[in-house]
């Protein structure tokens, strides 16, 4: 049903630490690897090794450059479905294929009833849904619904593929509806925030901001580098000759 559940006590989601993400794309590739064989299978690619590659991915990592309080930095920014509490991507769906689960808040697409009208992707401000041109249905992050409850996996593997893959531990998974969960506590401690809160879909996933840095040191100016006085030694004459010869050649 495309009507939203009244209220989901449990709000499963991700917390992404922008302070330590290095933009290595491990989460994106392992997401692709798991989900092209899991609930969202397939995640088709077109011309993957050619001149115009494209394909359905559920997680995308941007890099930006920012300045804040006199410091500058590089920001690696993973972007995937935020499993919003009140998203129109669910309510606009004409078939009921796009839905939000009452039990844990995960937003899913039913691949058996989706007609591929793409309207839900138009309703998502985060660009989190990608259409699969081969499969003819909409694809999106499932929060690895086929891993997190999967008792055939080892307990440590029952978390989203991206969280398992991240080499720096920048991604965490848990219940953001429970203020005592580990993820909620890290959000409280670090001033975690949601994306585009002004828009009003109430995203569940949180991001942790880059930590404050030392102010950038002043950029060295060329005049500041002292040039040593010539001392007239044989070694200096030799280097002067090498310099002249090489300059003349090039």
């Amino acid at each position: 049903m495309t009507s939203l559940p009244e209220n989901t006590g449990t709000k499963l989601g991700l917390v992404i630490d922008l302070d330590i993400c290095v933009g290595c794309q491990a989460c994106a590739t392992s997401c692709k690897e798991w989900n092209t064989g899991g609930y969202s299978a397939p995640l088709s690619d077109h011309d993957p090794y050619g001149a115009d590659p494209s394909g359905a991915w559920l997680n995308r990592i941007h890099s930006y450059e920012y300045t804040r309080d006199g410091t500058s930095g590089t920001l690696h920014f993973p972007r995937s479905c935020l499993h919003c509490e009140e998203p129109d991507c669910v309510t606009v769906c004409p078939t009921g294929a796009s839905y939000k689960r009452e039990e844990d808040g995960i937003v899913l697409v039913n691949p058996d009833t989706c007609i591929g009208c793409k309207l839900c992707s138009w309703a998502c401000p985060y660009g989190a849904r990608e259409y699969d041109h081969d499969d003819g249905v909409m694809k999106k992050c499932t929060l690895c619904v086929d891993r997190i409850y999967n008792e055939t996996l080892a307990p440590e593997d029952r978390s989203p593929a991206c969280v398992r893959a991240c080499p720096t531990g920048a991604r965490a998974f848990g219940d953001l509806g429970d203020p005592d969960s580990e993820v909620s506590r890290s959000v409280a401690a670090r001033g975690g925030f949601g994306l585009l809160e002004e828009f009003g879909y109430k995203p569940v996933n949180r991001y942790l901001p880059p930590r404050d840095r030392q102010p950038d040191p002043p950029a060295p100016s060329p005049e500041a580098t002292p040039t040593p006085e010539p001392d007239g030694s044989a070694l200096e004459a030799l280097f002067a000759w090498v310099d002249r010869t090489l300059t003349a050649r090039s």
Binding site: Y64, Y66, R68, L75, R79, L195
Partner: peptide
């Protein structure tokens, strides 16, 4: 992007 207090922001690498 949502980070509080950003002064400037510019895209560096596309995903």
């Amino acid at each position: 992007i949502g980070i509080p207090g950003l002064d400037t922001l510019r895209p560096l690498d596309a995903p």
